[in-house]
């Protein structure tokens, strides 16, 4: 076949009849280009995901890892019994949800406030916008360790600041629960280490929400704004009745993405607390099953549970919150 042009329109009319030789060569070209990418993902992501299913039904130990086969000899649900049977299974699940929802909401709220503040141009805005993204781009390991040092009860700066107000040193990352006295009126018991970890998530991921919300704010039509002004709406009314409804699609997409990614997150909690003081989330537990206890099968089983919960939650999201016109 001679080299000819294959514009999209011409193709479409021809496809309705039979596949032309040209369309077939186009198809071959497309497949050839994408093949390497598909192979890489198939071998390194899809195949392992399937293997994980089989692993979760086999007896697989870290020490005899060389003998673990792909399909395994005798399938058993023992791994699932083991994983669900341990005392801290339900507490870990609860922690995971509090951590995920808390971190997601806090990061989106902070991102919203930051985006609203930086919406209008001022001198130096470009610089501030760049600096505000730091928490998101800094390597997680550096971020986690600088937080550890800042929160250290002996020499950390945060406790030094608390000291100015006469508050005794607090070990933020190792205190399970803390009695917070509210103006001497009543006391609140808060899970301190977990709350601290949630604040870390808020701090680290608000730039992500900030960028998306800022982009949405800046693409909003000006005339609605002006109409609200002419109608005499105050700033808070304008936010409540104009801006917020217009931002809802972006916010709900952000909520979904951040929920999924926080739910799957391992590094942050592992590096900050190692899962101590009631901060152990399901991913940290999975790595603990695998490396700490050398039980690969149990790790795989818990991984399956993680994936199942994720699928259910995302399914519910699409059933109840997703509208066609979104984003």
């Amino acid at each position: 076949m001679t080299e000819t042009l294959a514009p999209e329109t011409e193709n479409k009319t021809k496809r309705r009849r039979r596949k032309t030789p040209m369309a077939r060569s186009e198809s071959r070209f497309g497949v050839a280009l994408i093949l390497p990418a598909v192979l890489v993902v198939a071998v390194l992501v899809v195949f392992p995901l399937l293997w994980n299913v089989s692993l979760s039904f086999q007896k697989a130990r870290l020490i005899d890892i060389q003998d673990v086969s792909i399909l395994g000899a005798d399938w058993t649900t023992k791994n699932y019994d083991t994983v669900v049977g341990v005392r801290d299974f339900w507490p870990v699940l609860k922690t995971t949800f509090i951590y995920t929802i808390g971190g997601t909401i806090l990061s989106i709220f902070m991102g919203l406030v930051a985006a609203m503040s930086l919406q209008k141009a001022f001198r130096g805005r470009a610089l501030v916008r760049g600096v505000v993204l730091f928490p998101y781009v800094v390597p997680v390991i550096a971020a986690a360790f600088v937080w550890q040092v800042m929160l250290n009860p002996q020499f950390g700066i945060v406790n030094e600041w608390l000291g100015w107000f006469g508050i005794p040193a607090i070990d933020f990352l190792r205190t399970r629960s803390y009695e917070l006295s509210v103006f001497g009126l009543f006391t609140l018991t808060i899970p301190l280490a977990l709350t601290t970890v949630i604040f870390f998530e808020g701090w680290r991921y608000f730039p992500f929400a900030f960028l998306f919300i800022l982009a949405a704010l800046q693409s909003m039509p000006k005339d609605v704004d002006e109409a609200a002004y002419v109608d005499g709406a105050t700033l808070s009314q304008k936010f409540r009745y104009v801006t917020l409804p217009a931002l809802l699609p972006v916010i709900s997409v952000l909520f979904l993405l951040r929920f999924i990614w926080t739910f799957n997150k391992f590094d942050d909690v592992f590096l900050l607390t190692g899962g101590a003081a009631d901060t152990e989330v399901i991913t940290v537990k999975i790595v603990d099953w695998m490396i700490g206890r050398g039980n690969v099968g149990a790790a795989a089983a818990l991984g399956m549970i993680l994936a199942a919960i994720l699928v259910v939650v995302v399914g519910l999201y699409f059933k109840f919150f997703y509208q066609e016109d979104e984003a």
Binding site: N52, V296, A299, G303
Partner: peptide
């Protein structure tokens, strides 16, 4: 694929 938990892929890859 991009939304799937990294830990789950990591276990079989490790093996």
């Amino acid at each position: 694929v991009y939304l799937f938990p990294v830990v789950i892929v990591a276990i079989p890859l490790f093996v």
